[in-house]
Nucleic acid binder design. Structure first.
Lengths: 358, 358
DNA sequence: CCTGTTACCGAAAGCGATTTCGGAAAACAG
DNA sequence: CTGTTTTCCGAAATCGCTTTCGGTAACAGG
């Protein structure tokens, strides 16, 4: 299926060269600051290039240089879920940072019936990208496994459980949830339930670890039925809360793996006529703007997702420019944002009820 | 600044040709289904290509063909705001649709101090994209003005006020808000206030038109101070609601330009101790999942943003493949999603108070 | 058996840059 | 004024693929 060739009417280096009475090679070297071109000539070429609106064809340049200054980002396959705000923010930051280095951002979706690694492999083989950013890492992540042996620069937002021979930027999720627990315990809570996410996702695992270790450290009651896993959206959160409200030893606080889950939980609690922030405290994680808009405001551990996107972009470009340099591995902290959803427990409930089975 | 040439270790057509004992040209034509290649040969080439994992370099292919199968999407400059969920959904749908046609999606941000048109211009001149999708159109949109005379295929999500000689896909915002008003009036409301967005954004303008015309048609009270403009986020919505609550003739319902605004309004109302869905009804627009998670659930006009993204992708690719064909101009309808935030007005308030100045 | 088609494939010329290599002109030294 | 460096630029090869243009071999018809 041969196609037509709709040649763009843009200026080529040949035209620019003819216009200047120079050879293409000279023009090219002038624009790329080669030392063997007279400064006067460089200036002349620059000026003409500006006037004619010349921009080198990135296609031709890529072919000649053999370098692709484009970062790939594969959107997680949507299994009914919608793309979450956290990813959107990362993308925004990433695009912004890449623009500053004159790199491009290629966003790819995973078609039905394919998987992420397949998509990445095709992007690499067809020479469309020169690096990757991987978001929302899993404990055991095939994407990272693949990229590790692919010779291509990449940065992971998050970490995996096993290997550590690659660049990543992660939030200290464990510490964040320990902090959150400290806050709750400091407020007087001892009966704290946990709405966790898919433990395959490393952040969910890490947060759970933080919760569990802090609960132990503080000697919190941990009756069975206090810890949920696999809560990934608002609806799941509502169901979990419904369960929880039937619990003989009702918790006074709820720690949630994400803001979305926390908001779902708050909704469910409000629906059940329970006053959030009063009868039950809730803490989330993310720092979504929405957390400020709901009632009561959501107390949460905030992470600067836009900044994460930017930093990740910076790292991947740096790595592409200096392949031999050691991997950046950066750990950032989340910060506690206090709003109305977490307060001291209601007085009547401050009894050390006999805990159930852990 | 000459760079190194880190040649990828991928298979080239030359290697494949040598491996097969054929010429490069023949291999190329075989893979592109030229009619003058024996079917047997095509099959043989196909097989070998699969086995060797050959993928043609898109860079070389682009250079040779002079066609760039990439759609550009410029993220709106973030003036403190965060990227909204609606855009994220569109992106997701767009990427998915493009993947099916084997097109790529290039997402660009606007660096500080530049504007969107500049960014688009550079993307075109440097040959990085072969088409554009423009989202969130303004009534008077420089991006559309620019693209109209740029000879490059593009699709606008939304419309502009003036020209109509380009492809677009829009929601019938005016009708949607008339429908919303009909719903409110049907419930018994007559005193309805409006929290509108930036009227430069065409959807905000259209929705406002819908509100105003329906209000007139139904003979609703329209005292001054009932219509707000420029409400773009939750905080602005809160301030507007604060104003509104001081109004001598308090409205019984609130129509909001977006879900985000509606959620901000609900928050403000709840904060003021007013029961949403009871004392005051609220309706939004978008159909964000969050609207289902808040309490009470948000009654809203839903639009299928993911589908919009897909359709827009389909259109732009179609247009790129058949440049001469007429512009697709598609109008979709939003659908009313009823939840708890809009109900008949409280009985005591159902008095036809004397309206203020319109 | 000879000629006219058809069916297939090879050769070669781009596409628009980059980069190496070498040579002419200019600058410097003696 | 000649010989040697520098400076600066042109020529040409390349990157990997597409596509046009012939040309050979096979096949048909007479």
């Amino acid at each position: 299926m041969p196609r037509v060739k709709p040649r763009r009417e843009t200026v080529s280096i040949a035209q620019l060269a003819k216009h200047l009475g120079l050879s293409e090679g000279t023009v090219s070297r002038a624009l790329n600051n080669y030392p063997d071109i007279a400064k006067k000539t460089i200036a002349r070429v620059r000026k003409a290039a500006d006037e004619l609106g010349y921009r080198p064809s990135t296609t031709a340049r890529r072919l000649a240089r053999g370098v692709v200054e484009t970062i790939g980002f594969v959107l997680p396959a949507r299994h009914g879920h919608q793309i979450d705000p956290f990813l959107a923010e990362i993308l925004d930051g990433l695009a912004t940072e890449l623009a500053l280095s004159d790199w491009d951002l290629l966003v790819a979706a995973v078609p039905e019936g394919h998987d992420e690694v397949e998509v990445m492999d095709r992007l690499i083989r067809s020479g469309k990208v020169g690096g990757f950013v991987v978001a929302r890492s899993r404990r055991n992540d095939p994407r990272v496994d693949f990229l590790r042996k692919s010779q291509i620069p990449f940065v992971v937002q998050g970490r995996t459980a096993k290997y550590d021979d690659y660049a990543w930027l992660d939030i200290d999720n464990e510490k964040a949830f320990i902090d959150a627990m400290n806050h709750l315990v400091g407020l007087g809570h001892r009966k704290i339930a946990y709405l966790g996410g898919d433990p395959d996702l490393n952040y969910a695992w890490q947060r759970r670890e933080g919760f569990v270790s802090a609960a132990k450290a503080h000697g919190c009651d941990m009756p069975s039925g206090y810890v949920f896993d696999g809560i990934s959206d608002e609806m799941a959160a509502r169901h979990a809360v419904t369960e929880l409200l039937k619990h003989p030893d009702r918790p006074t606080a709820l720690l949630c793996v994400t803001d979305a889950v926390a908001i779902g939980a708050i909704h469910a609690l409000a629906h059940a006529g329970i006053k959030v922030g009063d009868e039950i405290s809730v803490i989330g994680f993310d720092g979504l703007p929405m957390g400020e808009a709901i009632h009561p405001g959501l107390t949460t551990m905030s992470q600067a997702s836009y900044q994460i996107g930017r930093e990740v972009g910076r790292i991947v470009v740096a790595q592409a420019n200096a392949p031999a340099s050691p991997f950046s591995q950066i750990l950032w902290e989340a910060s506690l944002t206090i709003r109305g959803s977490a307060n001291p427990p209601a007085q009547k409930s401050v009894t050390n009820a006999k805990g159930g089975i852990s």
